[in-house]
Design a protein around this nucleic acid. Sequence first.
DNA 1: AAAATGACCAACCGCCCAGAG
DNA 2: ACTCTGGGCGGTTGGTCATTT
Length: 294
Amino acid sequence: MGRTPCCDKANVKRGPWSPEEDAKLKHYIQKHGTGGNWISLPQKSGLKRCGKSCRLRWLNYLRPDIKHGDFSEEEDRVIYHLFTTIGSRWSVIATQLPGRTDNDIKNYWNTKLKKKLMSTNNISSQKTTPHGLLSHFLQTSSTNSSSSSSPSSYSDHSNFPSFPNPNGTFSTLLEPISFSASLLNPTNLISTNNNTSQDQTFIVNPNRAQNNYDAKSDHGLLVFGRDQASCSSSDAEYGTRGIGVKDEKKRMSFVKQFHDHEMWMEASPLMDYGLEEIKQLITSSSCSNVFLDG
DNA sequence: AAAATGACCAACCGCCCAGAG
DNA sequence: ACTCTGGGCGGTTGGTCATTT
């Protein structure tokens, strides 16, 4: 029971676009716009292409504001930060990099940035997923931390995955989330994620964490959720995903530190946001310091 | 010089969602 | 309330070029 195809695949051209086709599409859109209907555009413009193919070609290549060429170190950092924060939402990441397309960023991540990260941090490829990065951090944190140490001994961020800056220094991936690492001491944390096959999105929302204190099991839940669809309103659902801080006092301290560091995603819980809201959050200046160094 | 391998990236595929009817 | 359609998205593929053996 497949859905009807968007075009007659037998009668449309596929594969690389010729310069003539590019010119035709560009000329048509510049003159008439897309008309809000990509499906009918090929016919109107005289192209023997699928509407989706036209859309992709325009958005990823022909659009006048597209930036071609190498990514800058600053762009690298933005991608790093956003990927570890929201995961592989390339279109959202692209909104933070003017002139770059989601496809570009995706390709760049898969072919270059991921390797750069792996070589810098000497970690395996599976750890370049958002969940993997956090797991890696927790493991290395565990290795170097003892439960009896004072909180100040966890202020060393050297275990965070890092990447090189142009000036020769290193920045940590999670640098903007510069809370005391004592609260991430694994002895204070429990991983409640039992679905390792699925990557998670690391939008940290202390507001939601605060709301998800689970009295029954005596631990608050700091949720690193995946997306709107994967979250139900039930605590049980949250309980299957995320990181919990066992102790209420520590949990509240954790939340406070997010707040102190302006990590607070104001208003309603982020887990209830749709894509547009997330985009707005990301593009709003008050939120940008969550992802970018000031 | 030729074959094998790797890197890159444009393009495709199929799914999901929102809106129209 | 339901179905259909188009737009948008992330994952994947396949072609081309560069590098290594």
